[in-house]
Design a protein around this nucleic acid. Sequence first.
DNA 1: AATGAAAGTGTTATGATATAACGGTAAGTT
DNA 2: AACTTACCGTTATATCATAACACTTTCATT
Lengths: 133, 133
Amino acid sequence: MAKEVKLTRNQQVVMAALTDAGQPLSAYQILDLEVVRDNGLKAPLTIYRALEKLMALGQVHRIESLNAFVACDHEPHAEPAAFMICQDCRCTIEFSTTSLSRSIARHAGQHGFQMAGMHLEVSGHCEACASAH
Amino acid sequence: MAKEVKLTRNQQVVMAALTDAGQPLSAYQILDLEVVRDNGLKAPLTIYRALEKLMALGQVHRIESLNAFVACDHEPHAEPAAFMICQDCRCTIEFSTTSLSRSIARHAGQHGFQMAGMHLEVSGHCEACASAH
DNA sequence: AATGAAAGTGTTATGATATAACGGTAAGTT
DNA sequence: AACTTACCGTTATATCATAACACTTTCATT
């Protein structure tokens, strides 16, 4: 892991829930999990606060098109995120954008736009779902 | 224009509001505009229904990260959309993804993912705002 | 013109997502 | 200990989006 930051109890609980899920969950879906409620988290704000911190640490990313949150599946990072989202099983695959973001930044520059960050979401069908029709 | 589809009154009102605005507006911001209310549109659902149609026609696009909608500034299209969004003045610049989406589709394919569509949002500073600091 | 299908509309209610405001607590500086 | 900073619990509220139902308009086809 890049940088061991001590997470608070609430943050650990939310992080564990997302890691276990292996797919994006909305804040309210997290809130409804038994393992979360049993740990005393019972208000939306409690979840959102934990998520906010986890996103700042790059351990969780937000999927805009789903209004949901997903555990980062490799090194935590704040770098531009990109996701493939299966329309069938809802699984997500995160991929790196190092090369892509450079070319997009250049493209933006041609429009006089100074790029600060980017967010890419690709929808479609994952390998398992595509082969199963 | 690609295909002249006759818009209903509600759809025309919403389309005109977005075109006039020249920046993304939320459904409720549209609803609150005088020009919209004066035309008798007074319920959220009325706005959402018009937006749904306009998006299907490719004349309006949704900006996920803002929960807002923006008028398409060139040929209406259903093609993968990409936007640069100024964090200062909130203006958006839409750009084409024909070359980009091909390379992303190829990238996805390497992960066994069959791409259906994509949505790219670049945040940063537009030329005017960047030069004004 | 009659008729029937499809799309659009108005209205009310509700669901889903997210944050504001306030006061209190925990943990680490110095 | 005093101070700072982050975190937390609670209540209320803001914001975004859709369900359900009955009615109307539009328009191709008979």
